[in-house]
Write a protein that binds this DNA or RNA. Structure first.
Lengths: 118, 118
DNA sequence: CTTACATACATAGCTCGTCTATACATAGAA
DNA sequence: TTCTATGTATAGACGAGCTATGTATGTAAG
């Protein structure tokens, strides 16, 4: 993730990120990478070595499915959510919110003076 | 973490949790574990094999310091934040809020219909 | 009394997601 | 033609958190 967030923060939420950018419409690896980088203002910059294995894992788990497009000079592998992927996305989003709330409580409990999120 | 959150969510935020429960007052391992379990309503239940190595790592990094208390039958190792630990805590809290906001944006951008956090 | 459980700390070894490094190939710009 | 951006891919290293196990004491139940 280059600069930006410390590496381990991503762990466990990268799936959520990728699934969520696929929620709208099918995309290919490189465009997923770019969109996440843009939305995060460059602070989450997935390397190829992170993204592609992740996509392969999601596909192996039947959460996304892929289709090659060789019609142009650039070979692109398009991914889209499966039904299971949509379910997983919603479940993970719920869990994420719940987790955030949980940490937030811990922080406000013991550190009421801590600077609040913007 | 037993049931509750999927394992990788904790990654990168466990340090933050432990540092934050130490912000108030010195505590020993077992009490840290209990407090985190209580605040999270049982959903973050650190195993000994997770907590103690983590504490040793934090101490090796000079973010906390320890002192044995053998005055009672129960040997307890009390930990407290160092100055560096306080700095790290605030930095990590900031980063956490920033990261949460970032993910939140991604979720609302592509999934405006997603259930909001409570 | 002795059995059981909560307390209290510790380490060895495993898992597996993310990272770095490397590889190959095309399109477009300098 | 040389450099950059695009586009996908894998091998190997790293390391945080997990499981399993070990030791030992205080306290309550039977």
């Amino acid at each position: 993730m280059s600069d930006g967030f410390q590496r381990d923060l991503l762990r466990g939420s990268l799936d959520l990120m990728v699934l969520s950018v696929l929620a709208d419409e099918p995309q290919y690896g490189y465009s997923i990478q770019k969109q996440i980088r843009d939305v995060s203002q460059g602070r989450v910059d997935l390397k190829a070595g992170t993204l592609y294995p992740l996509l392969h894992r999601l596909e192996a788990d039947k959460l996304i499915r892929s289709k090659w497009d060789d019609s142009t000079g650039r070979r692109r592998k398009w991914y889209e959510l499966t039904k299971a992927g949509q379910k997983r996305l919603h479940a993970q989003a719920q869990e994420w919110h719940s987790y955030v709330e949980c940490i937030g409580q811990l922080l406000t409990l013991v550190l009421p003076t801590l600077p609040k999120p913007a």
